[in-house]
Design a protein around this nucleic acid. Structure first.
Lengths: 216, 216
DNA sequence: TGCGACATACCAACTAGTCGGTATGTCTTT
DNA sequence: AAAGACATACCGACTAGTTGGTATGTCGCA
């Protein structure tokens, strides 16, 4: 991991069409200001396109919110799918490797590492069913990607009383909670508070799976 | 706990002044719609007061947001301070008792059990330093109330590698994360998903403090 | 009679969304 | 290969309604 790259969004293809520029702008502005507080005009200004282009590609602001959640989901899941921890032979190592990667990706101000889907759903779960469903797909999609490794770890270690799916959901919940509490902090303290939460989750997993909690 | 009471807000004194009615309205509307999406006009309509009353008591919408966070903080901390788990002799029992109470308070749709401070800070951490600080005070105030019991439990059980303060922050983070993931779900699934998160946290604490994870 | 607690009327700025228009294609027909 | 028909991508002025906030007035009570 090079230090210069943007945390949590390492591989951004340059946005070329107005649609892509608007989605990139949406990710940035939703992370910093939230969904409701971001106006269509601000989105267009940030993307460097006009309002005509906006409503050519999206039928409404809500439709952009849905598309932004999908866009976010696709880019993050592609990134984690290609991460090297998948090659580890032990499922416990893969589970802990995922957490270590997430910890490594946390840095800078909250808008650099927080989650678009979580921010969207917090604001729009009641006002927009479409956004709620898109955020659900993003967050639960992340969880699903962990399920198989966690199930394998549970079987291997003889853990009872939970499932891989439940633990995977818990990982996502702790990540979302880490982002919320990080946002309560002044900028320079936010990242370390978020990392602390994932470190506790790592310790929980290490205890569940009979590992010492050594940091690698 | 009677079933009829409003989850997480058991003891609401009847709002009598315009200011109190506005704060009650703010809690309700911020939970359901978020801060930015809630207009001053909506707040006044919900509270049954006029705009003149609003700006008589609050200098701006932002000031209401700060006051709502303080109001929320005061009412919740008073509730938890008076909860019976404080009388348990064992600090581990007190820590687990807090979690059991939080689990018991989760029910109904997300707007019935979610946290005003968490919702506020997620939206306004960048746009309003005053709201960010008020939300920090609310959430970290909750954490501080747990710190002594967790420190005592750590000493009693010989836990190393963390502190009561860190564990207390983690409790708050998991609670906030539980609320976020609950909001991704359709209404009838939200509460059980949130409870699942606190159950994992309870198991973490039970393992840390050398307890079986028996539910009481 | 003065002052706190409201109510009413109002405003400038901003909101999401519309609409007529243009530039640049890419097929299809002859 | 030329031309007509149609589609896509984008532009920017415009509108109807909403926004947070203000200015001024009223009313009851110490």
């Amino acid at each position: 991991m090079s230090l210069g790259m943007i945390p949590n969004r390492p591989f951004r293809p340059p946005a070329v069409t107005a649609r892509d520029k608007l989605l990139e702008a949406a990710v940035k502005l939703i992370r910093t200001s939230g969904y409701a507080a971001t106006s269509v005009d601000q989105l267009c200004a940030e993307a460097g396109v006009t309002k005509g282009a906006f409503f050519h590609h999206f039928t409404s602001k809500e439709a952009l919110g849905v598309a932004a959640a999908d866009y976010w989901s696709a880019s993050t899941s592609a990134f984690f799918a290609s991460a090297p921890f998948h090659d580890l032979p032990d499922p416990v190592d893969r589970a802990l490797g995922y957490l270590d990667l997430r910890i490594a990706l946390i840095g800078g101000p909250p808008e650099a590492f927080s989650c678009v889907a979580g921010t969207l759903v917090q604001e729009a779960f009641r006002s927009s069913a479409a956004i709620r469903v898109a955020a659900e797909a993003s967050i639960m999609g992340n969880a699903n990607a962990l399920e198989a490794d966690l199930d394998a770890a549970i079987v291997q270690c003889g853990v009872s009383g939970t499932t891989g799916a439940s633990l995977a959901r818990h990982v996502q919940a702790v990540i979302q909670g880490a982002f919320v509490v990080a946002k309560t902090q002044p900028e320079e303290c936010a990242a370390s508070l978020a990392r602390e939460q994932l470190a506790h989750l790592r310790r929980y997993f290490a205890m569940l799976f009979g590992r010492e909690n050594q940091e690698e």
